[in-house]
Design a protein around this nucleic acid. Structure first.
Lengths: 361, 361
DNA sequence: GCACAGGATGTAAACGTTTACAAGGTCAAG
DNA sequence: CTTGACCTTGTAAACGTTTACATCCTGTGC
């Protein structure tokens, strides 16, 4: 509201002097300083960052685009990103794409219009993202988050999705499972899902098994019961489900319970991400844990380093972070006798372990 | 990068004409239009929002401050807020206060410096918030989210926390519980917690019971086991716990299980917020559900209405939204025989309901 | 007594827009 | 032919800063 000119007039000096005082850019005589301070107090003057940005050609603002905030793994990374930005005096503009490449591109467009100093992105598909192309064209500092680098030189903060999924699949195989199905939420709209499936398929192939096609579930549908039903019948039903992320896995576990299946006795379920919630449910969720908050923090640090063109940043731009196969009650040994799940299940149980034994033991 | 002048020079016209074309503000002859479009394509020109903002004295940017993004109830509201903002062509700056009034105030300060057009806030304490005072001083459009209005005329999107907690407490009492403890996360840093406690205490008093003091847990501590232990011994232990929010409630349920208590047979637990996760765990969480996403959306709509000074907005500025007492398996009847919980519990059980009966029935 | 250093302040341009106002042109009505 | 209406375009000011450059003082060293 009050601008620098008002303050200057009130203090009886020029706007340059006020600016210098506000920025501590030059020594100001005590008398003038006192008058300026009084004027600032009286007018409630606050320097306009937009005036500054215009002059400085830098906004001290970063943009971050994620598919959604309702998946804790993204919320957590945004949280870390924002915390680091704040610590360095940067603001954060946020946008969610809802897994839609068009919205994603539009968000990037908007952010570029806002002259953000840099961008962090979790895109639907790093290989075909129009958003990424736009950014590259403009030469804005940027970093991928959760996506893997689509080209050499691209900064990316992520785990190796293929290797992680392979390791998790090996863990499932080690429990004796032989029929495992990969469930994906938004398979088409997530390159992470596809990479994880590749790791899954590779592990199965290495074990001499033919990997079944992934089954796509719309995980915005809170009750995937109907979609799951076909997996529960027959002698050849799967005994384990690899869900492409934890939110999906928790939804699937809930659906399985409603359908009368015990997890993990009748069906093992594993996820990917390592959200906290997975530790709170029973059985606890077996999953691939990635350090989401730290990833958001690191993405921000890399981005700031790039903006300040600290060369150190570029060094291991795309090196993978460590993941962790987190054991949990939702993965158990394959049942020795496989029975169809559903009505009449009680008669067919071959395992009478109490539900909570695993956790309270 | 490229600015309007470059485009104008390349197109052989004045910057005013380019501006008019970009904004569709006036008819442009076909030839000139073609030249301008070519120039824009060639230069990759994108109008600078910061130049616009300076001229227009409006940024089309909103700020939102919440305590954290890791609590789904806030993440969800931010998500709704951002979606509505986007739909109206507004950007969103985000900040998290981590329940610290100082950070909260600093964030508001920063946002004002950025000349946001309006602010949505979930403050620690609406009655003593320095941030709120700052905003009022500047006269910026603003709306509280989850906080109740601290003064007449303040816009606030929230449920009636006192009434909601009272209703939930009545539901607990109706199950026969007589010793109920209120557990709060960050009691000191959340006016919502305090209001909910007041409703809780009022309901108990009305039932002729003396409300015990609230027990404060640091819910950032993932394992509140030690803090909970004292509540589990003796004949006079509580049989129900009212947690001030769902995240805390889920943490408490997890801890209780580890400590050997069955929920709800040995101990009932209820929460507040109605996060989706509560429906995925077993037993499902009994809670007060508030429509977090819709609240974020409404907050944004109210804010935009205020910015455009549509009078309609001010009408029911602070009217409460409806809440919903969501039944769930975590609230059961009070045990007829109360036994201490811990080692040897198996011998003292007076209720042999299978763990999952409630859900699969 | 003079030159010069250095401190404090002012002047004005620049950053990228939008827009009031002015001006030029074309055309139709009188 | 003149007038005015209307369409298209240009000129220049304004938005709020920062900062190079200029200016004016004061004081010090010779």
């Amino acid at each position: 509201m009050a601008n620098i000119k008002e303050v200057a007039d009130l203090a009886g000096c020029s706007i340059a002097t006020v600016s210098r005082h506000v920025n501590g850019a030059a020594p100001i005589s005590v008398e003038v300083r006192a008058r300026i301070e009084a004027a600032i107090l009286q007018t409630g003057y606050r320097p306009s960052e937009i005036g500054r940005s215009l002059k400085r050609q830098a906004t001290r603002t970063l943009g971050i685009v994620v598919p959604s905030l309702t998946n804790p793994v993204f919320a957590l990374s945004v949280s870390g990103f924002q915390a680091v930005a704040r610590r360095h005096g940067y603001n954060v503009l946020i946008a969610t794409s809802d897994y839609d490449p068009a919205i994603e591109a539009e968000a990037v467009e908007t952010f570029l219009g806002q002259s953000v100093d840099g961008l962090a992105l979790t895109v639907c598909d790093s290989l075909s993202s129009p958003a990424l192309a736009t950014i590259d064209a403009g030469g804005k500092p940027n970093v991928l988050l959760f996506n893997q680098a689509d080209m050499p030189g691209r900064q990316a903060v992520t785990v190796d999705n293929i290797e992680a999924a392979r390791a998790m699949t090996d863990a499932i195989l080690a429990e004796g499972h032989r029929r495992i199905v990969f469930l994906a939420g938004r398979f088409a709209a997530s390159d992470r899902s596809r990479l994880r499936y590749r790791g899954f398929a590779a592990a199965l192939a290495q074990a001499g098994l033919k990997p079944p096609l992934p089954l796509e579930l719309d995980f915005l549908d809170a009750t995937p019961d109907a979609a799951l039903q076909p997996l529960l019948g027959g002698e050849n039903r799967p005994t384990a489900l690899f869900c492409s992320n934890d939110v999906l896995a928790l939804g699937v576990i809930g659906a399985l319970k409603r359908l009368g299946a015990r997890v993990p006795d009748d069906m093992s379920v594993v996820g990917f991400d390592g959200i906290d919630l997975g530790q709170m449910v029973e059985p606890t969720l077996c999953t691939v844990s990635q350090p989401a908050r730290a990833m958001g923090e690191l993405a921000c640090e890399r981005l700031l380093a790039t903006i300040r063109s600290t060369p150190e940043a570029a060094t291991d731009a795309a090196r993978f972070l460590a993941f962790d196969i987190r054991r949990g009650g939702s993965l158990g040994p394959a049942p020795r006798v496989v029975a169809a799940i559903g009505a009449g299940q009680d008669l067919q149980r071959d395992n009478t372990t109490p539900h909570n034994k695993r956790e309270t033991a």
